Amino acid sequence: MITGTKQEDAAASFEPLRPKLMRVAYRMLGSVHDAEDVVQEAFLRWMNTDRGEIREPEAFLRRTVTRLCLDQLKSARHQRETYVGPWLPDPIVEEQEVEDVTLPLMLALERLSPLERAVFLLHDVFGVAFDEVAVTIQRDPAACRQLAARARDHVREARPRFQMEQQRGLELAEAFFKASRGGDMQSLGAMLAADVSLHADGGGKRPAIPYPILGFDAVMKLFERVAALFSKTQFVRAGFINGLPGFVTLEADGELQTTALEIEDGKVAAIYVVRNPDKLKHLH
């Protein structure tokens, strides 16, 4: 039986590490709810661990979280295959740009095996040495290096190629909102790249285009078609959504929505819209 004092001691040593563990879990799973469940399970295990024998609590807990995520990814892969329409990770909205794992990179991570994903994130993103990665995933360091190399080959194109000043990114996002919601198709068209794409995640819970819209003409036709509905949208806030400039809106149906913009050479190259209410609960 765990006494109140032991539980308090466990919480005191765990809570400062919770944000770091959430970062690992969320980037592994792409789901805020699932990441919270994994981190909470790690805490329960931490309470039942002989903590006096643990020399490096952060490394121990990171290993625990990673292994729990690997177990979770086995079922998550099936869920992705049966998901209605395009799947996008839960939107994380932040005041400042976070450059380690942007939304396009998270989508690229979906193409990796669970072990490749774990090795890439731990080593290339979080800077964990291969020796520790090897202990975490129970492979030798040489195998971990091979997994990392394969992962890099898959995600290379998803790495940001164009750096943009943060304030400029937010300004473009707000201009995009005003043009798209105000029906100013001329201004909107001036912002879009020729090969722009639009990806909308409704998860079968709210109306959304069930496939990516590709190309300038197709994207413009869509915005022209929904202009009247968009006019009822309320702006909530601008911010960086999974590392991309974007905004949160309250839509005509009374539900929240996030829109993230991938910008290349000053033009909007991709638009990522999350409408699935299950993925927006944490924003309320």
Rank of each mutant, 00 (worst) to 15 (best):
L198D: 01
L147C: 08
F240Y: 12
M1D: 08
C69L: 01
R159Q: 15
P210R: 08
A108P: 07
L147I: 09
F177D: 06
I54M: 01
E36N: 06
F235A: 06
L147T: 07
C69H: 05
V236Q: 09
V248G: 01
F60V: 02
R62V: 13
L103I: 05
L283K: 03
K205P: 01
A59Y: 05
L112H: 06
P16G: 00
A227Y: 00
P212I: 05
T5W: 08
N242R: 14
L244E: 11
D34I: 10
T102Y: 04
A148K: 11
L188W: 10
A129K: 13
G52D: 03
D90A: 09
R150K: 13
D34L: 14
L112Q: 04
F130S: 07
H154A: 15
M1P: 07
P277Q: 06
L29Y: 01
V38C: 03
H199W: 15
L261R: 12
D201L: 10
P91E: 04
L70P: 00
A208W: 02
K20M: 02
R62Y: 03
G204D: 14
L17V: 04
H123E: 13
R181D: 01
K221M: 10
N276D: 15
F43D: 02
P89Y: 06
D131C: 01
D153E: 15
D37A: 01
G239L: 03
E224D: 11
V155T: 10
R117P: 04
E116F: 05
L244T: 12
L222T: 11
V84C: 12
S231K: 13
A149H: 12
V248Q: 04
V274G: 01
L61K: 02
L250K: 11
I263Y: 07
A194I: 10
F162S: 09
K6L: 09
G169E: 05
T136H: 02
